[in-house]
Write a protein that binds this DNA or RNA. Structure first.
Lengths: 247, 247
DNA sequence: CGCGAACTTGATATTTGTCAACTAAGGTGG
DNA sequence: CCACCTTAGTTGACAAATATCAAGTTCGCG
């Protein structure tokens, strides 16, 4: 396995040095996938577990009427299908939004991990439950905020999630998605996405240009959309470096 | 534990007679809770696991601006907080929408179950993953459908979920929520809820009166909103009254 | 029988969608 | 390195969905 996963699981507060060692010695097969390719399709019963190492992917459903709705963004360190074995089949698809590097991990390997490493198991469950909490936040976000604030909220979330895997600076990150993709996340039209981005830029909150998002003033952006990071369930950073106190 | 839970877990396809026996002999303490009471508050770290036996409850967040968003409906057989132990604290609240009967199960009891009964553990995970799948469906629902179809979709889902716990007939069920509550689920104003209900009634699709929902023609309602039950991950009824030919 | 909560209705404002045309950017073969 | 071509982004005009406000009306219950 690779470092983005470990860096992310660090946030659970469960891992010890031994666990980190165990995780980093797991053998994986990484492959390169181009943009806009399905990794898993609705109805599949995937054999291996997929983990994003580089790039952005998404969970999506095709709705009656033909539009696509994106229900989750998967960034490096995120699993695509950790627990599908328990359900009979995928009820949604997963596809890449940018070129990606994907690790394939045999299901047996994951089962070996969860059978023999209690803390790693808990860390994996922590990741699953944090994903679920993120879904709830997105739902509330979509239900109660106007589109401007929805988008601001999404960017606040991504900033934190990408910082955790060392893919964002204090206030900026590479953002490979297209404006239409963004619309499919927020449930709004591509045209409207464009107008909102201009408004947010006009307010001096952020700039999205050439696939890079720069936030002018993080505190102000958070205030603008009422961002509360509690749903991400991260352990508080001590001093910039990720030194998680073991439980 | 009580029958709605067992009836629901039946849908996972994992339970054997022994498991049913084990579950029904779990000692629980049931209590009555009136309408509009918090069962768990944001920030809590609940001691016991709560299970809804009667009535409707909901997961909700209070948003900046004061509005409430309901992110999940909990009906008999649903857990409130099965896995919070892994996270540090609740990131949302749970409150009753009608008078409810709630079972309190000591966390130790649940742990004993999951330590010693592999199939019950899988059934509980099945329930958790199905909840997550429901969140995704709600998100796509809210993102891509107009409010009429959102509401129709919600009623299609509830019909199935309540049928599983024997609380709905072929085409009707008791629905204790207020129109304002419904608005808090769908993210629309109470006024608009009212108008949609009239439209749906006008179309001859359903009637909501005196806290009871009657669906005039289930197949037509499902077609109206493009309902696909796959996300509920229920096992197909073998001999059941309804040949659910998916969709 | 009366009171408060829930529901209903009309008028108007705001947000967001759709369509269609146009401009800018990135990638490819020559 | 350029010409071209495709995709992504931008703009304006207009239409549709939904919110808000305010004033009724009905329902359920003590």
């Amino acid at each position: 396995m690779h470092s983005p996963l470990i860096r992310k699981l660090e946030q659970s507060g469960f891992l010890t040095d031994v666990d980190r060692e165990t995780l980093s010695s797991v053998p994986t097969h990484a492959r390169r996938v181009e943009r806009q390719k399905d990794l898993i399709r609705e109805g599949d019963r995937p054999e291996n577990v997929l983990l994003v190492l580089e790039g952005f992917a998404c969970r999506y459903k095709l709705m009656p009427g033909g539009r696509r709705h994106i229900m989750a963004l998967l960034v490096p360190g995120d699993f695509c299908d950790l627990h599908v074995a328990i359900l009979k089949q995928m009820d949604h698809g997963i596809s890449t939004l940018s070129a990606c590097t994907i690790a394939e991990i045999p299901r047996a390997t994951v089962e070996e991990l969860t059978d023999n490493h209690r803390r790693i198991t808990r860390a994996l469950w922590w990741a699953t439950l944090a994903d679920e909490a993120t879904l709830r936040e997105w739902l509330a976000n979509m239900g109660q905020r106007d589109a401007n604030r929805q988008m601001a909220h999404l960017f606040c979330e991504l900033l934190l999630r990408l910082q955790v895997v060392s893919l964002a600076t204090e206030d900026a990150f590479d953002f490979p998605m297209t404006q239409t993709d963004l619309g499919d996340v927020l449930g709004i039209s591509g045209v409207h996405v464009n107008r909102i981005l201009q408004e947010l830029r006009g307010e001096g909150l952020l700039t999205l240009r050439r696939r890079r998002l720069e936030i002018s003033d993080v505190a102000r952006l958070k205030a603008y959309c009422g961002f509360n990071a509690n749903y991400l369930h991260m352990v508080p950073r001590v001093n910039g470096s990720s030194h998680a106190k073991s439980l």
